[in-house]
């Protein structure tokens, strides 16, 4: 039994054909598998190792290098607040503090209902629209604590 959906597995198989080596599509494969599974579980690692023709050790070496990849489950909505310089200059620290208070969790924490997780992240490429955050892959920019509350409420109601 493969841990990911058949569609995803098929997508991997097809996409891998575009590369001259079996392991090349590894990093996107890990990210897409994680999107579907929530995190890179042991089963996911085993599956992807087989897919990429690598040892599980090698797959773990790669996972641990990339900051978006995780072997630990996150919340359904992963709130990533950028506090890098451009965001910092425009109040990102207060924003991150606010998120902590609001969600009742710290950096890399997960709410007890597993709906939200929080992470202080490095530059996400929203420097001219700072401060900014990403919830999963969605960008939210020019944020204030008030706007952040609206954003969180909106996700909560999904």
């Amino acid at each position: 039994m493969i841990p990911v959906s058949e569609q995803l597995d098929h997508f991997f198989t097809e996409k891998m054909k575009e590369y001259p080596t079996q392991r090349s599509f590894l990093v996107p494969m890990l990210l897409y598998a994680q999107d579907e599974l929530g995190c890179l579980s042991n089963q996911a690692v085993e599956y992807i190792a087989g897919k990429a023709g690598l040892s599980q050790l090698e797959v773990r070496n790669v996972i641990s290098y990339y900051s978006m990849l995780t072997t630990k489950p996150r919340g359904r909505f992963h709130v990533q607040v950028c506090t890098n310089i451009c965001c910092q200059l425009r109040g990102a620290e207060d924003l991150f503090e606010h998120c902590k208070q609001r969600l009742g969790i710290g950096h890399k924490g997960v709410t007890s209902d597993e709906q939200f997780s929080l992470e202080e992240v490095e530059c996400i490429g929203a420097c001219s629209w700072a401060p900014a955050a990403q919830v999963n892959y969605d960008f939210h920019e020019n944020l204030t604590p008030e706007k952040m509350d609206q954003v969180l409420d909106e996700y909560r109601s999904r």
Binding site: E18, T21, R23, S24, F25, L26, V27, P28, L30, L31, A52, N61, V62, Y65, Y66, S67, M68, L69, E122, C123
Partner: peptide, 29 residues
């Protein structure tokens, strides 16, 4: 002529050109 898309997974260092190639080859950057 083929053009393909590829994506990273969070690493500033991969912006360095040789690390970028490593990442595209499925390795640590």
């Amino acid at each position: 002529l083929d053009v393909r898309w590829h994506t990273g997974a969070g690493a500033y260092e991969v912006g360095e050109e040789s690390a970028l190639m490593e990442s595209l080859e499925g390795k640590r950057g």
